[in-house]
């Protein structure tokens, strides 16, 4: 009987970041440069950075091409169709049902940001489905950075929309008509809750995206790992006798 490989190690190595990119079609591996230290921060690119850049390039090409096609058909006076119409349908769904649906009136100016975020995360997620691919969104640093940017966007646009004074009332909130000791008590209780409330959503979403991507790959790899543990295709059809017979045959 052959030695079962350490599936846990394989899963961890596959899911985690590294300085080595596996290349498809038997082209081997691409060893990325290391040791780019700037102010003590390791800025050397990793596998996830490479796939992130790849995702960004693909997103740009997709949207750029779709936009060109939509514009050309518009100018020719034709009804929308083709690849541009497919992307346009997604864009309109995000704009009308997600952005304006959640932000409300005036949410149109956030549409480009949310759309970029949507397509970027979508492509990052999908790239992990290639056998040699990696999922940048399965990295806490990536999701954390996206959450940080979302947090800053939300709070800064809040300050812009409400003014600094109005924005501060969303943190230091006293119900109208409440004064004196009760107001102080209210502030003491509500201020930490409001502050936590502002942080919780980006934090939770950052963890959710990371956990979903990582767990998804864990599950796929664990199921694929069963093949190597049992060393037989029989597991695919529930034929569990295969390893025993093989072991007996040798």
């Amino acid at each position: 009987m052959i030695q079962a490989p350490d599936i846990g190690k394989v899963i961890f190595e596959h899911t985690s970041d590294s300085h080595v990119v596996e290349l498809p079609f038997g082209l081997g591996e691409w060893h990325l440069p290391t040791g780019w230290y700037v102010f003590g921060v390791d800025l050397s690119p990793t596998k996830h950075v490479v796939f992130m850049v790849l995702a960004a390039v693909l997103v740009f090409l997709t949207v750029w091409y779709a936009g060109r096609q939509v514009q050309r058909r518009q100018q020719e006076g034709k009804a929308p169709g083709g690849f541009g119409a497919a992307i346009e349908a997604i864009v309109l769904f995000i704009r009308d049902d997600v952005v304006i649906g959640n932000i409300g009136h005036g949410g149109e100016k956030f549409a480009p940001y949310i759309l970029t975020l949507f397509f970027f995360i979508l492509y990052c997620n999908l790239l992990g489905l290639f056998p040699w691919g990696a999922t940048p969104t399965g990295n806490l640093a990536v999701t954390g950075a996206l959450a940080l940017m979302a947090f800053l966007t939300i709070e800064i646009s809040g300050i812009v929309a409400l003014g600094l004074k109005g924005y501060l009332t969303t943190i230091f909130f006293v119900p109208p008509g409440m004064t004196g000791a009760l107001a102080a008590l209210m502030l003491a209780i509500m201020t930490p809750i409001e502050l936590i409330g502002k942080l919780v959503k980006p934090f939770a979403l950052c963890l959710r995206l990371f956990a979903n991507m990582t767990a998804g790959h864990f599950v796929i790899l664990a199921l694929l790992g069963l093949i190597f543990i049992f060393a037989s295709w029989g597991v695919a059809v529930g034929y569990a006798e295969a390893p025993r017979r093989r072991g007996g045959g040798e």
């Binding site: 390791d42 996830h48 960004a56 740009f60 949207v63 936009g67 970029t116 990295n139 640093a141 950075a145």
Partner: peptide, 27 residues
């Protein structure tokens, strides 16, 4: 990895800027 955070911010902002200029307005 703090480096990856920086990479993400740079790549995302670059993509956002490019799409803001060349991508979304067309559609």
């Amino acid at each position: 990895n703090p480096g990856v955070i920086l990479w993400t911010v740079v790549v995302f902002l670059l993509l956002l800027a490019l799409l803001w200029k060349f991508g979304w307005p067309a559609i």
